[in-house]
Design a protein around this nucleic acid. Structure first.
Lengths: 157, 157
DNA sequence: GCTATAAATGGAAATGATTTTCATTAACAG
DNA sequence: CTGTTAATGAAAATCATTTCCATTTATAGC
């Protein structure tokens, strides 16, 4: 099924095997859904898409696979404040450029933005360096989110 | 009980009444616990502290009060990834300076840091301005967290 | 290709933080 | 002091996520 993009074996197979994980149909399909996703999906979103093509794959497998993917750093897990986690392929695959989120605290709408990313990244690198030196952490990731009221919700108030 | 700090009526009473909320013993005690807290508390943490002095106050009231406080902007709500929310008095009261968080993804330890805050704030203001113009959001808040492995967890791996 | 073995799986049940329900209590405007 | 309505506690409900366990499947070694 997902045969990559003509550049040989699927990009994540190597990393998976390297970690001692097996390549299964469920994992292929989940990765495929994530690769094609154009927005942040919840576990249930992913389940529904997967289920449409492969009804045998259960929700439990979705959760288990997502946990592995997050731990491996292939997928980011976000909390936008509506009680369910959202998942998004990390950069480094063939999709997704680095971005941050702008979240409406009223309707929970999420805007991905890439503006100012360069400045942010530069500062982040400096901060990461400082923090890891001072607190002796190995920093692997960061999260930046802005909260506010979106266009529509402003008008309703 | 909480009589403020000698500067007249308790600082948040005005804001509370202004929003049409009543001042109750439960709310007084909860705010008091938050004011004295020196770290991020979960709803249950707060409940236990409150319960010690006022056993009549239930967990439900804690959750309901926290929701109000978060909506009013008096309290920040955080997700550090361990399945329970943490609450922290917003700045503007008498405690807490603006800070961000450094989180160990393994043991969930959280370090508050204030280093580099000035540079961060400057960039944040610039970004907030740009984002609110471009996406027509009214930005009220932001979240910055760094993730990594702490000192102890690094050694164990 | 075949087989043994351990990883992966699905479905049901468990978990656990948070929310809702509803009858009772308490704040406070007048 | 009193009526009105918000606030409350206890128990039940919710609901995303996790765990359990018997079954299936990937794959290393032949």
């Amino acid at each position: 099924m997902p045969r990559g993009n003509g550049q040989g074996p699927v990009w994540w197979h190597g990393r998976f095997k390297g970690c001692g994980y097996r390549i299964t149909v469920g994992r292929e399909v989940i990765l495929d859904v994530l690769t094609k996703a154009d927005r942040h999906l919840s576990a249930e979103d992913i389940y529904m898409k997967v289920h449409a093509a492969y009804p045998a794959i259960g929700l439990t497998t979705i959760y288990r696979t997502l946990e592995i993917l997050v731990n491996m750093g292939l997928v980011f897990k976000f909390d936008f404040g509506d009680g369910r986690a959202r998942y998004e392929l990390a950069e480094g695959s063939n999709r997704s450029t680095h971005h941050h989120h702008l979240i409406c605290t009223n309707c929970k709408r999420v805007v991905d933005y890439t503006d100012f990313i360069d400045d942010e990244i530069e500062l982040l690198h400096k901060t990461e360096k400082g923090l890891s030196d001072k607190y002796n952490f190995t920093i692997t990731n960061h999260l930046i989110q802005f909260y506010g009221l979106c266009d529509k919700c402003k008008k309703r108030k």
